[in-house]
Amino acid sequence: MITLARNRLDFRFAEVHGDAGCGISFQRTLRIPDDENDYPLPPGLGRFPLRHLDDFAGRVPETWVKRGGVIMPMHQAEAMWLSFGGGYGHYPCAVKVATGKIDAVTGKSWVEQLNGDPQDYLVLPEQPWLDGYCVEEGVIRQFIAMPLGEGYSAEEQITGKAEHGGLQIIVYPMKAERYEEMRKRFRTISSAFDMAGAFEGTRISQGSEDMGLAPGGRMRQQIYDDPFGLDAWDQDHFSRCFVTIANSTVWAAITGERPPTTPPTAADYTRAGLPWFDYYGGDAKALRGAEVLAKLKTVSETGARKGDMPLPENEPVDVERIVSLRGRRSQVVRETEF
């Protein structure tokens, strides 16, 4: 089952094991420049708000209601990363993440089951976060929100259609017996502003309101190889969630809540002397990245072809202050709210 607490999706599999589960939240962050430089990890600037889509069923398009799940606001051209862990941090889980039903690790169309060749999922808790599409070994391209239907999203570039948008997540827990074996072996440690009234009863029409994710700048981040093997995962038990992304104006109209402010630019943040991050996952092996994702046009490339300037403030940034993170507690540090 999935519950929503403090803007985090909590996945629990009590039917598999009392400890089985994980938490997933979405962090606001800087948009790294969309150029050919490789950037370190930008900070987390706090969680994006998440709400049950059902709470606004009368105000959103029927296609959104049909998907269920949750709704999240993003500004156009805003970046985001997925943060894993919290609450149920110790139990291993396999997680598939797709944008517009395109797998963010392999670039293939969405299928529910896990595949090992090529691996199309992430392994928690080894993988502390995911910032974008896995384009090469040790490099991702940052997730950037763009309006669906304008040709920027990974979905539109790969399928030629602007059908789904948003983010899709499915989580499988480790088989209980594998977890227990592992535990014995390693003796693991223990344990608004009031706009709502004005829009009462009006259902927004679907169209430009739907947001999709598109590839942005290059960032150094490894997506780790599964050290347990496909057989470790309990594929009879899973929970999945569709995260609808609404642009900020639509979010305000639907929920009556003010969306988070626009993050600072990468240049302003860096000028203020604030830190970027690097993460070392020890000896863990990294996936090679997907060719189909590497070939995608970035937001600035698509913009240039269309004669648009979709990314303001896209100048390269000289990053000087980089904090190296190691181990599980890195999560807390990178998510510090500034």
Binding site: M1, T3, L9, L53, K66, R67, G69, S239
Partner: peptide, 13 residues
């Protein structure tokens, strides 16, 4: 108690 908590509803997609 977990049966009375509110689940995120999964739909058709």
């Amino acid at each position: 108690i977990l049966t009375v908590v509110r689940e995120v509803r999964d739909g058709d997609w």
